[in-house]
Design a protein around this nucleic acid. Sequence first.
DNA 1: AACTATTACTTTCATATTGCAAGTTAAATT
DNA 2: AATTTAACTTGCAATATGAAAGTAATAGTT
Lengths: 139, 139
Amino acid sequence: MEDSERRSACAVSMALEAVGDKWSLLILRDLMFSEKRTYGELQNSEEKIATNILASRLVNLESNGLIRKETDPADSRRNLYFLTCKGIELLPVIVELMQWMAKYNPEASACIEQSKEYKKDRVSLYSSLIKKLNKNHLK
Amino acid sequence: MEDSERRSACAVSMALEAVGDKWSLLILRDLMFSEKRTYGELQNSEEKIATNILASRLVNLESNGLIRKETDPADSRRNLYFLTCKGIELLPVIVELMQWMAKYNPEASACIEQSKEYKKDRVSLYSSLIKKLNKNHLK
DNA sequence: AACTATTACTTTCATATTGCAAGTTAAATT
DNA sequence: AATTTAACTTGCAATATGAAAGTAATAGTT
């Protein structure tokens, strides 16, 4: 994003310009917490994102360097989407949002268990999750 | 929000339905990291939110229980906006977004210093900031 | 080789949201 | 009493979103 079209240089504002919409973080959630890797799989998420919006978000996420697209070696019709390091490092944001909602609305279901691990030490939870993602997503 | 208009019961999705737009978290940022408390002050933030959008976001935030509105005892034209406990507990989300952007874009300025404190221990940083906010915002 | 199915989009169009600018209301100040 | 200030509200144009149908390329089937 160019300086000129930026609202400000505030890090929070800039972050929101990248992922501050109702879908981008949900796509990242799927890449983080499920085995979904293809367009079709992402489209079939519970929330039923419209196909044109999914396409546009994937382009944004890729051009912001949060995901990487690769042709499936087993079927060249298919593309596989992977998180980059930069994308993986949004995991704490997603986990914090999840824990926050789970705390304030009992109907909200968290992708990861509200384990003792979390209550003990959030940061080591982040690290262990990030480690796993690095293994599955990075080249 | 009613079950019927919910995309899903996923905590991440529900959280994004509450604050997943380009402005809500920015308003919370101002309440957290500046002394801004009135409509006019919030409107004059660097990002220049449109007045009707600010009004609508304040209504949303209040009806979601993230902020609380009070008439200024010193001037009854003025309203003061304060964070609730629920609002304050979004601080980790905002801090993580901020740190993430600051890491990946050197032009991004963080509201709080990228201090040794953060590098040492994020969680104790959260606690100390939350403590301060509790003091200034809660009744 | 021809046909069908599948995958990843793109296009179209109706609806909803955003943003700018100007207007309103009530209370404080002069 | 007149003016100013603060917090909105309203109207309207521009942009973004969402539903549905369409397209292009490759894979699988006959």
